[in-house]
Design a protein around this nucleic acid. Sequence first.
DNA 1: CTGCGAATGTTATAATGTTACAAATTTTGC
DNA 2: GCAAAATTTGTAACATTATAACATTCGCAG
Lengths: 163, 163
Amino acid sequence: MSARALPYRPHNHDACVNQALAEAKAICQQQNARLTPTRERVLELVWQSHKPLGAYDVLAKLTSEGHNAAPPTVYRALDFLQQYGLVHRIASLNAFTGCTHAGKHHTGMFLICRACGNALELTDTSVSTAIYNAAGAEAFCTETVTLEVTGLCPSCQTEQHHE
Amino acid sequence: MSARALPYRPHNHDACVNQALAEAKAICQQQNARLTPTRERVLELVWQSHKPLGAYDVLAKLTSEGHNAAPPTVYRALDFLQQYGLVHRIASLNAFTGCTHAGKHHTGMFLICRACGNALELTDTSVSTAIYNAAGAEAFCTETVTLEVTGLCPSCQTEQHHE
DNA sequence: CTGCGAATGTTATAATGTTACAAATTTTGC
DNA sequence: GCAAAATTTGTAACATTATAACATTCGCAG
């Protein structure tokens, strides 16, 4: 598998989408989960860019395509996708983004640019370890970690025009 | 200044509240900010326990005290308190909690027990450093960090009855 | 083809958060 | 002290995000 493109640099984004869809199909098949058309379409929509997308944004896109959708349609699809590790919810944005480490056990860390809105998902062992240890020092049993960093991505640090 | 009590252990909680209020007054005085009665009352309410409180919970308490409050009343007070580092917003819960490190420059890390609902705020240099470095390795300029760990606190790991 | 569980449609509503403008209060400059 | 300015609060309406409850349809095993 090739390295992931950086969200805030120009790249062939179709490759991102295709890879994500291919991985999703493989994962669902392997786990005997049904990647139905609606679920697949929602996953595609979330992957339309590296900017986390609100549930109602997804809904609007579905609607504009003629899909007869309501909020539960979207939230159910997103729940399913989250369950199988195909998308992440960004709590600080109330939005969803495609998982770039699908299938791999990981603690997502997100770098979210406040200027261009793109989010980069990282996995960093020293971060996870430090968090796990800090929690352990308080005898706390860690189950889930929400780690979202906001700031400026390399592109937006130098450019004036934010995409 | 004495060490902080652990949220999920029995402790003299009035001391927590009193300390928080005293610190808040000192900080506001020092920064020439006005800790008005409404703001102070909201801070007290948020400090009524170590369980992060929703804005509408605060609103309900204010209302039950006869205060003529509406959502903006609460959100404005919370915004003010956040601005001066007196409360934190817990994004994964849509709730607010009193800051136990008010006045000190810090990156909050929260250990949130899914059983009892209490939250413990930590500051851990190795965690902050690891995060900052991981972001820096991507040439990302960190501004804010949201770090919320969910799991089981020591008490709830052993006890059946969750407070 | 029929019955069962999973998935989706549909309607309504809950929970969280914001906008906009008016009134009251506090501060400030004189 | 007093008027103007700035800050804070009141008030009503509304926007956004998410869920509940129940009916219907779909996919598939027997």
